[in-house]
Design a protein around this nucleic acid. Structure first.
Lengths: 166, 166
DNA sequence: GGTCCGAATGATACTGAGTATCATTTGTTC
DNA sequence: GAACAAATGATACTCAGTATCATTCGGACC
């Protein structure tokens, strides 16, 4: 969960202007409890009559992403969402129900990548790793609710382990 | 690299019809040297005057994906591509230059996921992991060519380690 | 405060992957 | 051949993301 101040400070430091629209977007982002889409920010901005254009929201998200303040996640469904986070290298575990996202650090995957590189001859320079499942809150709720009510999210097949694999 | 026969056999086994359009798509897929997009298949079908509709190509890809014969990858650029593969659980290393994709097996990431689950309280049911870099062929070419000519592919920021992280 | 100029903006148009719809065709079974 | 469901092709639609352009804004300088 990132603070508005962090977003604005990073803007300043990078030589970009902390304009009103960017401040407003930062506030919207900081208020998101989990991952979010650009469309959700657009709707929130409209609901609050902020008068911010959709293109501005995309541009601001791009800028924040470039600065490492926001990251774009792939969801199990194949869609994308953004999540605010610290600009250190890390991976995410994402709740497939509420979208809450937790940084889980490096996980030592650089070693895995190195080993694969050694084995295949590929010069690996990038890796991505994401974990999906129910967060403690949603898991507890699911336990309280009908156990037969299974999550609607169907993970995309591919480089994935999960219920879709059958 | 998957054989047309495997694709068609799997169709049969699953109770789906091995229609002419599906056979043609299977042939196109088997001919792809690396990952490919739906648009590429559409173009190839048109070039060969196969008379296959674009919607059919998407539907066939979806069906093959459902059967685990094709997987949808996220590219470092944030876009998507498909790759044919065996329906066992595995991860991919993807060449950022030519798109060639190699299965690298399980990599023991289920253990990583379990540990993260233990640590965070999340009930993790799905993970995805992809590796990107130059394949041996492209790496050799890059070594032969100007070393200053760096790959145009700019990895998306997010759950990623690579040149974008600065 | 005024001026200048580039950064930034909002509105709109555009692109393209992916999906939905519908009339028609195809393939299988009897 | 008839019946019926699966499958198809063409087309329309959706929506995330991007491009364009006239206008506004913000910061530097005087």
């Amino acid at each position: 969960m990132i603070a508005v101040v962090s977003l604005l400070t990073a803007l300043d430091r990078s030589g970009h202007r902390a304009t009103e629209p960017r401040r407003a977007v930062a506030t919207l982002i900081a208020a998101q409890p989990g991952h979010f889409t650009a469309a959700e920010l657009v709707a929130a901005a409209r609901a609050r009559r902020l008068g911010i254009g959709r293109a501005t929201i995309f541009r601001t998200l791009d800028l924040f992403a470039e600065l490492g303040l926001v990251e774009r996640l792939e969801l199990p469904t194949g869609g994308h969402a953004y999540v605010a986070c610290e600009p250190t290298h890390h991976h995410h575990v994402v709740c497939s129900s509420c979208g809450r996202t937790v940084d889980v650090g490096d996980l030592g995957l650089a070693d895995v990548a190195r080993e694969v590189g050694r084995r295949t001859g590929y010069r690996i320079d990038t890796h991505r790793f994401e974990l999906y499942g129910l967060c403690p809150v949603c898991a507890a709720e699911a336990r309280t609710t009908e156990p037969a009510a299974e999550p609607a999210a169907r993970p995309a097949v591919g480089s994935t382990v999960g219920p879709a694999r059958r």
